[in-house]
């Protein structure tokens, strides 16, 4: 079961702001989901290889050649804030 502090720590890792009056509801919902998920913890899976992908094929390799063209102006046209071809974010170094 997740404690309120754990819920806040997870939300912090996920970079999602959780208002103080919302944390208890969220805690209850997440614990409801985990109660269902926790059924799998009891199953003995020793000797079973984890399966990451349905088709177990090797990563394809390609020629080391340029395949993308420069479209930064197009892509940056969707950004919230751009200046001199750079994405702007709040100052991080004082």
């Amino acid at each position: 079961m997740l404690s309120l502090d754990q819920v806040r720590a997870i939300a912090d890792l996920a970079r999602i702001d959780v208002p103080a009056d919302d944390a208890a509801r969220l805690q209850q919902e997440l614990n409801g989901i985990l109660a269902m998920v926790d059924q799998l913890l009891a199953v003995d899976t020793s000797g079973v290889e984890p399966m990451a992908h349905p088709q177990e094929v090797h990563q394809r390799l390609r020629e080391d050649a340029v395949t993308e063209s420069d479209q930064h102006a197009l892509f940056q046209s969707a950004a919230p804030q751009v200046e001199d071809d750079l994405y702007l974010v709040p100052r991080v170094i004082e």
Binding site: L40, V48, M51
Partner: peptide
Amino acid sequence: ILIGTYVLSHGYYDSYYLQAQRLRRL
């Protein structure tokens, strides 16, 4: 996102994520 962040976080990765991948194979 929060459930995913939790099951991938330090200390829970093996018991949740790898266990789920093993069951996926079964």
